[in-house]
Design a binder for these strands. Structure first.
Lengths: 345, 345
DNA sequence: ATAGGTTCAGAAAACCTTTTCGGTGTGTTT
DNA sequence: AAACACACCGAAAAGGTTTTCTGAACCTAT
């Protein structure tokens, strides 16, 4: 029996396993085993240790543990642009998937700057993360971080330029098909496509899917061609005015974003066209605040970004366990029907 | 001279200081000093060590360093709701402020669940973070995490219920004043206030600021009272219709959110009221995608959330250095004038 | 040549936990 | 009573870095 009954350690220092062991009057080895549920410890002793740990509100030092185990139970989340609203759902999905599994997430925003990206990468590596997810804000391919990193990497939303890396993306071509198929199923035959900046791969992909589906159905692209512009309400309004002037018989418009769709709805109303009676409208992104509050409520394509983030986390888990993959994995999108197309089914 | 010229360590294991020291043919103590810029090292030796580190792409193990130093250079960012768009700018601001200063940020989303919050808190503490920022998604006070944590805590956006904690919030009362003062300065005298859910402190605060400013100016609240409802476009439209029916002489509307303002603009246009000619409109949140794309573009109040996040980071830094604070610190908002009020000065 | 100073390098402790292995004591079998 | 199995506990090493302190070598001044 240690006669030195020292007072509870001062609040200033957090309790360590040594403190617990001393209080429970066992060795630190026994204390460790007791707290980690390993056998070789008598039930009564274990209880005593647990009580001591409780009393000192002991919390094992993850640094020491990680140092020893070689795994830290943390991953990096490297985003190129937090502002862009597409990273956020992906980020939520990964955080969710990891958070549930006792992994902690380091968040780094490189702000689209590759210098900053390198800096964050170094910082993450020195913290000995177990893996890394790189989230882009556009669907255009981005430079690879390279093949010789000590940890597995998964690219989400924006794929890596290198086919050796594993990338998860939304199937934008399929999404374009989905939208047009839906409009055709609604009985429309004069379908136009108003979308954003043609420099975005997302715009090209969605347009390609729309074009292909129209061709297969033997239908023309109303307006003669895809109307590229910018991702804004203003462009949606302007393009719609042009379209109504040139192609008044249009009976459906597939929009490259919900913002564009809002402008389209606005212009259609101005011109006295009923939605969906005269013209059906499909948006893109399924951005609740825009789509669900539109008049009429907007049918839209949802990229399931949160799901994409979760899958990215799963793939990273697998890679950490040695089951690495490569190539681009394309995740399907989903059409969310609302009033702007379905009133006339 | 060590005759064992072992090959460069296998890629599988990341290089350690011992490897660097061996390659440079010095002790690890010397290697450490050389790399950390401490004196007591001859320039030539230092160069040799640095070259060796470079060659092995050595990156010091932050776990070991943190274990020794007692500080990890990491902080926790505990959000209650990533979905809510108010947390994001705050989060960006803190990430920015910390990222610049070699701190790494652990992101945790508790999803509004206090169980999950406790779990994340434990995890963060076991990782020995140096400090913690708690970001809420509503301005209503939230329960304190308690006074006896081993690290300093700063609450951002949503203040702590305890006055012993340090909280940073937006000055919503002041924002209400700002909006009404601006409308009065624009020559308006029949000012109404359409806002969201009265259960939100944000709604009450902004209304209080508006009321006080009207009273001081000797002006009535157009419509007789503040119109509380929900934070949606639909409510903005509905409230405006009611308002125009009851109080047709209204010449300005201060809205509790940009979403509401969009509905208000919509309804005003429907009723043939010119904005800002007949009625001036002020929104709230300065949510670019809504405010800048409205017709006309929407004057709005910006809560400077990113700045708030940066200040939170600074306060946390100070607290980590021992300069702890307490109480609620209120950050001013800012009016962003656009077409919906300014066309007529 | 000796005393004293200066400059640089290395040994060792410390940080905290986990795990392996050896040791002690108790109970069981012949 | 001796041998053995078993259950439990503790000593010690490992993981990578920083820091302090000691020690060695070299130089200068007397």
């Amino acid at each position: 029996m240690a006669e030195e009954s020292r007072p509870v350690p001062t609040k200033s220092r957090t309790a360590t396993l040594t403190d617990v062991a001393r209080l429970a009057e066992v060795s630190i080895a026994t204390a460790s085993k007791a707290l980690n549920g390993r056998d070789q410890v008598k039930a009564e002793t274990r209880a005593r240790v647990i009580a001591a740990a409780e009393k000192l509100s002991f919390s094992p030092n993850a640094l020491a543990r990680g140092l020893l185990a070689g795994r830290t139970g943390s991953v990096g989340l490297l985003t190129s642009d937090l502002e862009g609203r597409f990273s956020i759902p992906v980020l939520m999905g990964t955080e969710d998937a990891f958070g549930a599994g006792r992994m902690s997430v380091f968040l780094c925003d490189a702000r689209g700057d590759s210098i900053r990206e390198q800096h964050h990468l170094q910082s993450l590596l020195s913290r000995r993360i177990d893996g890394l997810i790189v989230v882009g804000s556009r669907t255009d391919p981005r430079p690879s971080l390279g093949r010789n990193l000590p940890v597995p990497v998964v690219y989400a939303y924006a794929p890596s330029e290198s086919p050796d890396d594993l990338s998860l993306v939304s199937d934008n071509v399929g999404a374009g098909r989905l939208a047009v198929e839906h409009l055709i199923a609604c009985g429309r035959t004069r379908i136009a496509h108003i979308t954003g900046d043609p420099a975005y791969k997302a715009a090209q992909d969605r347009a390609a899917g729309a074009r292909a589906t129209l061709e297969e159905a033997g239908l023309p692209m109303a307006g003669g061609q895809v109307l590229f512009g910018s991702w804004t309400e203003g462009w949606g309004r302007g393009a719609t005015r042009m379209l109504l002037a040139n192609t008044p018989e249009v009976d459906a418009i597939f929009c490259g974003s919900d913002q564009i769709a809002r402008g389209v709805l606005d212009a259609l109303r101005e011109h006295g066209r009923d939605v969906p009676g005269d013209v059906a409208v499909v948006g893109f992104d399924n951005w609740e605040v825009l789509a669900a509050n539109a008049r009429p409520q907007l049918t839209s394509i949802d990229m399931n970004l949160e799901h994409l983030g979760r899958v990215a986390a799963q793939r990273l888990f697998a890679a950490i366990d040695g089951k690495t993959g490569s190539g681009i994995e394309s995740m399907p999108c989903r059409l969310v029907p609302r009033e702007s197309t379905t009133a006339q089914g």
